[in-house]
Design a protein around this nucleic acid. Structure first.
Ligand SMILES: [Mn+2]
Ligand SMILES: [Mn+2]
Ligand SMILES: [Zn+2]
Ligand SMILES: [Zn+2]
Lengths: 136, 136
DNA sequence: TCCTACGATGGACGCAGTCCAAGTCAAGAA
DNA sequence: TTCTTGACTTGGACTGCGTCCATCGTAGGA
């Protein structure tokens, strides 16, 4: 994520303490935090950071393609820093944990032309569900 | 959907005009209405029906397995009466239209054991996205 | 026809997210 | 280094979607 800060600087971003802290909180693998979780963790490092700033920063990171928005349930969106390697998600139906997974094959290939209704289909998003080891 | 009313009667449901109207609104193919859309259409047939009743009835139909809840975006959930034949969804990125699609093969088969992290995976939900003919 | 438990109602409430006017500060200019 | 300025941050009001609850109404059995 330190190179993320470099890329953002290169894009003309002002480096504020708020943005640095949000980037730091998003660092890691299998990170899929809600905006409020990001805010809570960011606030441990920078107590006065506001919810609005967290939402603004996450939105900017998403439009720059640096972070992916994931809606696994009908609840709060989750923010995924692993936006550069395409992947899918495995969600525990018990506790809600989310893991990155890499299915074999291209899911788009499984949709035959006669099932496309004339759409220009560009993306397939797969959510696998089941019970994780600790919930089973 | 008339047989739906039969099944519900068999399950001990009281047949109220509200429930009849909600069932009628949900009749058809490629129906993926939000709760508020269901309410609006139901209210054309029964003006005094309340939002709470629509939510209650939809929730009951979902737990009986008669209707499927679909979250295609981070917005309002959609309610799908086509709950008996398993299928996936194709969503227009322009106008939000949703169509039922039937991909070939079993999406679950594409997730190898070493990508399951010990989960008991039971379900795979696929959302295809693209532009529909009128939005292209 | 009567009774009553189940269902309907509408309004208050909660959560996730957006918007805004006012204040603050990062970073280039001098 | 200090100055300047527009990009950024802030808190609070506001919206959309959904849930909850006390009260009222009625479907359907006795
Ligand atoms: Mn991910
Ligand atoms: Mn469907
Ligand atoms: Zn779990
Ligand atoms: Zn369209």
């Amino acid at each position: 994520m330190s190179d993320l800060l470099q890329r953002l600087r290169g894009r003309g971003w002002r480096m504020t303490s708020q943005r640095r802290v949000v980037a730091e909180v998003l660092d890691g693998d299998h990170v899929h935090l809600t905006a409020d979780e990001v805010h809570a963790r960011a606030a441990r490092l920078l107590p006065e950071i506001s919810r609005a700033t967290v939402y603004n920063t996450l939105g900017e990171l998403v439009s720059l393609g640096e972070v992916m928005e994931v809606s696994t349930d009908g609840r709060a969106k989750r923010y995924d820093p692993n936006a550069h390697r395409p992947h899918q998600h495995l969600v525990c139906s018990g506790c809600g944990t989310v893991r990155d997974v890499h299915p074999t094959g291209d899911p788009l290939a499984d949709l035959p032309a006669e099932e496309r209704f004339g759409f220009a289909v560009s993306e397939a998003e797969v959510t696998y569900r089941g019970l994780c080891p600790s919930c089973a």
